[in-house]
Structures are given as structure tokens and as C-alpha cells.
């Protein structure tokens, strides 16, 4: 708790580090999710777990500063991404949600497939983060957890 007479610097630093690791790890999980364990949901929950712990120790204000935007904006942008991914195929007159792929070769990575499912997954990732953060921040602010 961000209380003046109870300030634990070690804990605060550890939590900050933990949060950073979690967020970076979540991006990693998101990107590899199509081929290995991971994906939008898991990555989203992992990132938000990091944020939650950060908020518990540092307070919601600090969290707001870290994530820069209102969590609702995450939901909105995530939903937009999902809908873009869903309706992109309609433009080239396919059923909605059809997966579209671009195959590219990246020198180090090897063969790489970029497609609408990845956009879709990223959208899911953002929505999950936004939803959990909205809920947590609402609860914490009202119940004076900071």
C-alpha cells in the first residue's frame, strides 16, 4: 500500500521489475501464440496480472501513469482491431472472419506468416487487459485500496 509510514522500497522495486517482465513476456506469448502455448487470452491475463500487482503496491494512480491511457481505451482499441480483422475479408468479398495471410521471409526468423488471425489475437489481448484493468481499477478506487 502506498502509505507514507509503510514504504518498502525493495518490494516496490521488485514489483516494478516483475510488472515489466510480465508485460514483455506477455508480448512474447502473444506473438508466438499461434504456434506454441500462448495467445491473446493468456498474454492478456499475464500482462494484467503484472499490472494488478503493480497497482496493489504502488496504487492506481501510478498504474494510470504507467499505462498512459484509460483502460477503457484498451477495450475500445482491442474491439476495433478485432472488428477490423473480422471485416477485412469482406472487402475482398469473402465471408467475415476468413483468415487472410501474407507469407514473408524474415532473414533470421525464417518463413513468417502474417495474417488477420494475429490482428484478431492482438485485439483479444488488448480487450482482456482493458477489461481486467477496468474492473481492478474501479474496485480499488472505490474501496480505497491505494
Amino acid at each position: 500500500m502506498n502509505n507514507n509510514n509503510f514504504k518498502n522500497i525493495i518490494l516496490e522495486n521488485i514489483v516494478t521489475l516483475f510488472m515489466k517482465v510480465m508485460v514483455i513476456y506477455s508480448f512474447y506469448l502473444l506473438l508466438r501464440g499461434h504456434n506454441n502455448p500462448g495467445g491473446g487470452f493468456i498474454a492478456g491475463i499475464i500482462a494484467s496480472t503484472g499490472f494488478i500487482f503493480f497497482a496493489i503496491i504502488h496504487g492506481t494512480k501510478a498504474l494510470q501513469n504507467i499505462i498512459k491511457f484509460q483502460p477503457q481505451l484498451f477495450i475500445a482499441s482491442g474491439l476495433s482491431l478485432v472488428f477490423i480483422a473480422a471485416f477485412l475479408p469482406v472487402i475482398i468479398s469473402k465471408e467475415i472472419l476468413t483468415g487472410l495471410w501474407i507469407q514473408t521471409k524474415i532473414p533470421v526468423w525464417g518463413e513468417f506468416h502474417l495474417g488477420t488471425p494475429l490482428i484478431f489475437d492482438t485485439g483479444v489481448f488488448l480487450v482482456v487487459i482493458g477489461v481486467i484493468l477496468t474492473i481492478v481499477i474501479s474496485i480499488m478506487e472505490v474501496l480505497k485500496w491505494n
Partner: peptide, 14 residues
């Protein structure tokens, strides 16, 4: 068809 090795994830997003 869906270029993914993680079948569960492919089902979810595709």
C-alpha cells in the same frame, strides 16, 4: 490452412 501449430489457438482465433 491456418498456418498455426497451436491447434487450440488456431481454433480460437481462426
Amino acid at each position: 490452412k491456418a498456418h498455426g501449430r497451436n491447434i487450440v489457438n488456431v481454433i480460437l482465433v481462426d
